[in-house]
Design a protein around this nucleic acid. Sequence first.
DNA 1: ATTAGCACTTAGAAAAAAGAAGTGCTAAAA
DNA 2: TTTTAGCACTTCTTTTTTCTAAGTGCTAAT
Lengths: 333, 333
Amino acid sequence: MISTRQKDVLKAIVEEYIKSARPVGSKQLSKKFKVSSATLRNDMMALEEEGYLEKQHISSGRIPSEEGYRYYVDSLMEPKKISGEDMLKLQTIFSNNELDLNGAIEKSLEIISDITNYTSVVLGRASKDNNLEKVEVIPLSGNQIVAIVITDKGHVENKQITLPESVEAKEVSKTSELLNRMLKGTPIDEVGSKLEFEIKPIIGNYVKNYEVLYNAFYEALSNFTADTGVHFSGKTNILNMPEFSAVDDVKNIISKFESKDIVSKIEETSGEVKVYIGSDNELDDNVTVIKTKYKTKDKEGTLAVIGPKRMDYERVLNLLEYIKSEIEKKGSN
Amino acid sequence: MISTRQKDVLKAIVEEYIKSARPVGSKQLSKKFKVSSATLRNDMMALEEEGYLEKQHISSGRIPSEEGYRYYVDSLMEPKKISGEDMLKLQTIFSNNELDLNGAIEKSLEIISDITNYTSVVLGRASKDNNLEKVEVIPLSGNQIVAIVITDKGHVENKQITLPESVEAKEVSKTSELLNRMLKGTPIDEVGSKLEFEIKPIIGNYVKNYEVLYNAFYEALSNFTADTGVHFSGKTNILNMPEFSAVDDVKNIISKFESKDIVSKIEETSGEVKVYIGSDNELDDNVTVIKTKYKTKDKEGTLAVIGPKRMDYERVLNLLEYIKSEIEKKGSN
DNA sequence: ATTAGCACTTAGAAAAAAGAAGTGCTAAAA
DNA sequence: TTTTAGCACTTCTTTTTTCTAAGTGCTAAT
């Protein structure tokens, strides 16, 4: 129900507000249009009625509402290509063979927060299709051992364990032999239950002190599932945003970054790059989260950028799109 | 040259200021003394002349100068025992056998920042007296391998490597055999140079594609030295301090926390608990850093607490002292 | 050596005044 | 029917002014 010019007006307001963080008024806006400020005022009124704009108080300029941003992202934004400059910074990372995939991911997210001044997050966990390749037990001095678990995708976890005096070396090697025999090839997220339901019942037949050993390995193995590496870049970048000039607001948001359930709040299941504006992200009504899921041969996870609602949607979308594709390219062989 | 009462006055002012963060005036102070405010004014004037107190403006109350804090820490503070409450919270951690040493260290620092509301940091790196125990090479699918290095203290590092097509399995196992033979027992920080000067020259005789393999292992091994795990707790606790109510100050300090050379700025070489007030810490003139070095069988590092200059010296000193001793106790067997 | 008394200073809060940016509405022009 | 000029009216922001609380240093008396 809104005219072509009104769309242009909305687009201009959103873009102006993204740049300046200040409510946009009709006079100011009229510089960019060939119609008078009064006409624009009428359009703005219409756009407000449609729910795309709002005022902070009766005589203030307009700012985009969440609907307004959404409309902008869905229909108004022109999908530009990623800028040459941005591209350049990222390319060196993905073409650098010194860096392994994880390194490249983290580095590229660092760059994103650097150039955008938003906060970026990468979640990643060993993909479900990691299978256990080998369990290795290395005896150390005293009654210490270190248990190492390796998957066929090269993911390694280890755990140091102090055994009670009573455990003998032979029992340890028996256990590790048994584990290797029974667990090799098991998908890593099934290892836990297999340990509990298949191995625990029979291990007692072979090994005297199986309880301790069982617990030790259980711990080492459960590291895997627990490891949903969360990695932030530019966590404190909000300190630079005018909308977070009050220390309390900053505190509030940062405490959310650090909360326990951050993973579930950020995690994305769709492979597209998605935009969650204000109330439709789970983190905080005052921010926008743009995120996507990436998936490589041996790993999957989420890339996310968190910024104010007036974030530079075009740019961030492009950046994430690009990085995701580079990651998947690099991680596919 | 200052009288006994003047010492009492200084002590009272420091303690009051630590509590309230507000300049202390003579009237307010007179409640705690049996002399009149005029007399205290004279004492305060004398203390200011000695450099222990300062004013923010001509008619303000006094606040301690850095000298003042130093004098307080060195001579005025009464070395109380750690409070029962604080002790309790920490004890459970160190007596919990589920937690390994690293876990206990991090957890205890978390508790420190929780109860003090300051920021705490732990630096730790594998101690110099870790010796290489074993190098393990696990072939994965394709031409990937994962190289695992284990020390006699149970520290494990790993690195995934993509080999060029040309490398044969036999060469890989030869290399790993050679490395094990020549490196077992080598102190971990000498491994790098030994690789370069002793192994590199001869490995060519055994293995065709030694360059690639050499580089791969070099990388895996150099992880060790690079790993000076820095771990912050309560990084944003300064947001709660009245002296950092301006967003800019917060930004400034936090950016220092995140700077590259944070390690060198925090690292402590002395085993005592030391106090670095304002200008005599390398981090920032507006903070105090209290820190100490800990050293266990297989690890050494620094524990540090960063807070405003008016931090609760008695308490933090006690806490650090206690934690250090618990860590060293737990890490000695 | 200590204290009461007092004039004086300053930061900070509260109140008042001035200014800037914007709005909605009406009536005329296109 | 759409656009525009003109104007009265709001509200925020900034600046200025006023007031107050807390404190100081000094002098003279105890």
